Simulated scan of single mutants.
Amino acid sequence: MRALVTGGAGFIGSTLVDRLLSEGHEVTVVDDLSRGRLENLTSAREAGSRFTFRQLGLTDPAIGDLVADLAPEVVFHLAAQIDVRLSVEDPVRDAEVNVVGTVRLAEAARRAGVRRIVFTSSGGSIYGPVTDLPVAESRPVDPMSPYAAGKVAGEVYLEMFAKLYGIEWAGVAPANVYG
Results as ranks from 00 to 15, higher is better:
L41S: 08
T42S: 15
T42A: 15
E46F: 09
S49W: 09
S49Y: 08
F51Y: 08
R54V: 15
G57D: 12
L58Y: 11
T59C: 09
P61T: 09
I63L: 12
D65S: 11
D65N: 13
L66P: 01
L66Y: 02
V67G: 01
D69L: 08
L70A: 03
V74N: 04
F76V: 15
L78A: 13
A79T: 12
I82D: 01
I82T: 12
D83W: 11
R85K: 14
L86E: 14
D90F: 06
D90I: 08
D90G: 03
V92P: 03
V92Q: 10
R93P: 02
D94E: 13
E96G: 02
E96S: 08
V97N: 00
G101A: 02
A106V: 11
R111Y: 00
R111D: 09
A112G: 04
A112R: 03
V114F: 01
V114M: 00
R115D: 08
R115I: 01
R116Q: 10
R116T: 07
V118E: 02
V118T: 06
F119Q: 09
S122F: 03
G123K: 03
G124E: 05
G128E: 06
V130P: 03
V130Y: 07
L133K: 04
V135H: 00
R139P: 05
R139Q: 13
V141F: 13
V141K: 01
P143F: 06
S145W: 00
Y147G: 00
Y147K: 02
